[in-house]
């Protein structure tokens, strides 16, 4: 619980942060909300030699709607997403998901950019990004969500690359995110998101594998006229989740199906 020693500096702009990262070398990392990084440092699972703090950069904390997309700055906190009227009007699913991330402390500090970059298997936003074909905007390019999340804690980001924004399509149709967990502030054992978009359903599953997955089989079944119950049986197709102290692999597969059915039935 005592982190190893590290250097610390504050960045004043995105370019400055990238510069500092380059100067400090491969041992350096950026810190956003610190809600994933600090616990790992306290357990000495991460021992970055240098932290570049993004909290002094102005203008990375926003929710905007432009040309049919919802643009969210990387340093936007969970709590801001919960409160944003604009988000509730244009992407209510994400606002509802944000409300159930961690506890009030985590929501006050943690950022959407941090969730994306950290790529925890149980992260909630990656699922929403994946199912809605969101794009992750960095200091140098735009990366579609399906290419961004590569493996557990592994993304397409270069070591000196920063997430600056996440762009989602405006999605106002019926939706539901069901998160199964033991305590309200826990990470999902499994979660399922569904969103009506255009004339089809988008379905994503959290924590049934090393990364979020999009449940194409369920989407296809629904498109071919299957009932929610029938389509939900396809939710576990191709999944191979872990067993851990919270749930066995079989239980996670089962939950993927049950939550998919319930989410589709409850979507409003």
């Amino acid at each position: 619980m005592i982190p190893a020693a590290f250097e610390y500096s504050r960045a004043t702009s995105v370019a400055d942060a990238v510069n500092q990262l380059r100067t400090a070398g491969p041992e350096a990392k950026v810190i956003a909300g610190g809600q994933s990084l600090l616990p790992m440092m306290r357990l000495r699972l991460a021992q970055p030699g240098h932290l570049v703090d993004l909290n002094g950069i102005p203008d990375l904390d926003y929710v905007r709607v432009k040309d049919g997309s919802v643009q969210i700055g990387a340093m936007t906190r969970h709590a801001t997403l919960v409160r944003s009227e604009l988000l509730r009007a244009n992407l209510p699913l994400l606002a509802e998901v944000a409300k159930e991330v961690g506890d009030p402390q985590v929501r006050t500090r943690g950022t959407i950019g941090g969730v994306m970059a950290h790529a925890d298997a149980a992260g909630d936003y990656p699922t929403v990004a994946l199912m809605l074909d969101a794009e992750i905007v960095t200091d140098r390019r735009r990366i579609p969500a399906r290419d961004f999340f590569q493996h557990l804690f592994t993304t397409a980001l270069e070591p000196d690359e920063l997430v600056v924004e996440v762009d989602f399509p405006v999605s106002t149709g019926a939706h539901r995110y069901l998160k199964f967990r033991r305590r309200v502030f826990d990470w999902a054992i499994v979660a399922v998101g569904v969103q009506r978009l255009g004339d089809g359903w988008r379905v994503g599953i959290t924590h049934a594998g090393p990364t979020a997955v999009r449940a194409h089989a369920v989407e296809d079944a629904l498109r071919s006229g299957a009932t929610p119950a029938e389509a939900a049986e396809r939710a576990s197709d191709g999944l191979n989740p872990n067993s851990d102290v919270h749930a066995s692999s079989e239980f996670r597969l089962h939950l993927a199906q049950v939550l998919t059915r319930r989410a589709l039935e409850q979507a409003a």
């Binding site: 357990l43 506890d103 033991r182 305590r183 309200v184 990470w187 919270h246």
Partner: peptide
Amino acid sequence: LLTGTMTDYLVPTMNE
């Protein structure tokens, strides 16, 4: 030990 942190050792809060 498999439950060495407070994410794995489940102490409830008032919510639970």
